[in-house]
Design a protein around this nucleic acid. Structure first.
Lengths: 249, 249
DNA sequence: TTTAATTTGTTCGTATGTATG
DNA sequence: TCATACATACGAACAAATTAA
């Protein structure tokens, strides 16, 4: 018989585990409140510093939010993709991710989203996508900023039609990453009306494929769109490498 | 002229930002050490508790690791996918993710990985994949546990061949999620030799497609493999829904 | 509007167990 | 073995912020 070394679990970690489990199991719903720090001190039998370390960790994980003087205690937050974005940003920066790697990844995710949406979308979801498309057309005359927002809403409406939260979250995060990575170039050369028109036309082709349930075509169009849209920002050689992934039948 | 409300940035957050920036910019390399807490207290001009809250957050983000009594101070960790896994687990649990959603997502990611690997893999990477495949064959006689490990290594060797850290990390994380979600069922019905043989055969087909650079076939084989492998764990109706995403030309 | 009570943000001092030379 | 420096954890205290009487 050999005993195994007991691993040191710090006090704040046990506090984190219990609260986190309560939130993840929906025992604590979004919008509800945790007890005050001093009450938590009593309930967990630890010092306030320990409780606060635990709350900081939970806060950095995007699970709760606390503000000074709030008599209600920390608020349980609704799920958001901020923590996923943080994780991916860390990977991107530490691996010194090139733009091509990010665009590659976005091409894949976006293709997957459109493919799945074409397969499983309901009529209501299709309507929402169509409305988002029409909103884009209207936003063209309002400048490239409004157009960009409408574009974002269009992509989100397609992602919502997949009914897959994980895919949806990834799509949202990666879109944000790409935008932040090309934002300086985009600001230097904002969309012209001609470019917006072309972009809109491509979006409508994707919409058409989704409507007809042509998953393969929707996926390929989505991939091609990435190259057309970001093509001006990337080197010719990089463009060629991306085009290899657009295997239209 | 209207002033905007200054947002309260807490002391520990400024500490986090500075240290995080130093790590992400590679100014602090993995394996190097942070100053001791007491030194950080002096450098940042804050109290010990504040420094510790910051260190806890950085630790929960998987960037550093500290242990009691270490005269070197906290260690800067190498990048790992644990934080990404944590983020995705939170999404999965809070959205009450169904197995089908997870399998769908894995099918997509795995398909993307094989597709890209078939496009860009080097000869060295192909050799590594082949060796992993041969390792699987050898592990068949060592039981399903050894086979499972060899299987994992095979998938990771393909992911490495994509040279895309983001895709690689996602693949690793999602594979882990699926495994943990079906682990109880898997333990109840471990792989038989016949199942392992069949699995190996399918892996070799993927390897062949990657070797020949047939990206579309590699992707479709990878997707089909998911259904064949996890098919027994999921309802017939779910299986049909997954099969719609396997559009072999 | 002002005041009082409560809560979080932050600091300091101290005791304890741990790792290194 | 001992001394030193370290992280862990606790408790008390004050400032700043919020809420409600």
């Amino acid at each position: 018989m050999a005993f195994t070394r007991v691993q040191h679990v710090r006090a704040y970690q046990r506090v984190v585990q219990q609260i986190e489990e309560a939130i993840l199991s929906a025992e604590l719903a979004p919008g509800s409140h945790l007890p005050s720090e001093r009450e938590l001190v009593e309930q967990f039998g630890v010092s306030r510093a320990t409780v606060r370390e635990a709350l900081r960790v939970l806060e950095s994980a995007g699970l709760i939010s606390s503000r000074p003087g709030d008599p209600n205690g920390a608020t349980v937050l609704a799920l958001s993709s901020t923590n996923l974005a943080r994780s991916m940003t860390i990977i991107a920066r530490r691996e010194r991710l090139e733009l091509i790697d990010l665009l590659q990844f976005r091409m894949f995710i976006e293709g997957n989203v459109c493919e799945l949406a074409a397969c499983v979308r309901t009529d209501e979801q299709l309507l929402a996508i169509r409305q988002a498309s029409e909103r884009m057309r209207a936003a063209m005359s309002e400048g490239f900023e409004a157009f960009g927002e409408a574009d974002l809403a269009f992509h989100m409406s397609i992602a919502a039609a997949t009914d897959n939260p994980l895919l949806q979250a990834c799509d949202e995060v990666v879109l944000g990453l790409v935008r932040s990575m090309v934002s300086e170039k985009l600001a230097a050369a904002p969309d012209t009306v001609a470019q917006m028109k072309e972009s809109l036309a491509r979006h409508e082709m994707v919409l058409d494929a989704i409507e007809k349930g042509d998953a393969a075509r929707a996926a390929n169009l989505a991939r091609l769109h990435q190259i057309d849209y970001y093509g001006s920002f990337i080197a010719q050689e990089v463009q060629f490498r991306l085009e290899r992934l657009c295997n239209l039948p």
